[in-house]
Design a protein around this nucleic acid. Structure first.
Length: 220
DNA sequence: CCCTGATTCGC
DNA sequence: GCGAATCAGG
């Protein structure tokens, strides 16, 4: 792509209206952000108040870098008063918050509108208006993950009064906890306390041990 | 790491 | 003149 008059004009307008180099490059198409910046500087449009914070040479005149091999033009410090001072890039990036803008029914000026690749109408920087408040509030996760586990006692449902006896095996879709009201003073309900706390039977009278929580090795 | 603009330098 | 690479900063 070459820098035709039109493109240069567009670049100039957008640059002066506060659009970023990336935006300009994207708008123009076929050029990179660097190309835009390079061209802009070559055109002499330089030194916009960029998002790069300016360093106010404050109290300390310590200017290790800003020392002046340049006698001619002392840089006019950041003067927020003059025009191109995009103060609020928050809501509307592409919009140009300069001055001659919003209600500016161009008296003559046929309004240059070009058609983009997708068939959309391109806007000039001056025309840009932020018509769409973003705000797509949405929740990706429903309050109840799924009906299946809605009534089952999950890990999150456990409390001091809830029987935490595991039902099923961890990792399984339906794994949950007993959820019964606890046997006061114990972490399990009465039934599971009976399982958890087995009276030691006399040797020889042992029965095969009841299934422990998590059942030991998985039976398949 | 994303972004920004600025500058350099080989083409 | 051009712009990728690089730099410097937020």
């Amino acid at each position: 792509m070459s820098w035709t008059d039109e493109r240069i004009e567009k670049l100039t307008k957008m640059w002066e209206s506060g659009s970023t180099a990336s935006q300009i490059a994207e708008e123009l198409g076929g050029v990179s952000r660097n190309a835009v910046i390079g061209k802009a500087h070559r055109l002499g449009l330089k030194a916009r108040p960029s998002p790069v914070k300016e360093k106010p040479a404050k109290a300390k005149p310590a200017a290790p870098k800003a020392a002046a091999p340049k006698p001619a033009a002392p840089k006019p410090a950041a003067a927020p008063a003059p025009r191109p001072a995009p103060a609020a890039p928050a809501a509307a990036r592409p919009a140009a918050p300069a001055q001659p803008q919003q209600p500016a029914p161009q008296s003559n000026q046929p309004r240059i509108v070009s058609v983009g690749p997708g068939g959309f109408l391109r806007q000039g920087p001056g025309d840009q208006q932020p018509p769409i408040p973003p705000a797509p509030p949405r929740r990706l996760v429903p309050a109840k993950p799924s009906p299946e586990i809605a009534d089952k006692t999950s890990l999150l449902d456990l409390s001091d009064r809830i029987c935490r006896w595991p039902m099923g095996h961890p990792g399984e879709p339906d794994f949950h906890f007993c959820g019964e009201k606890v046997n006061p003073g114990f972490p399990y309900c009465v039934e599971h306390c009976g399982r958890a706390y087995q009276a030691q039977l006399p040797r020889g009278a042992r029965r095969p041990p009841p299934p422990l929580p998590f059942g030991g090795p998985r039976v398949r």
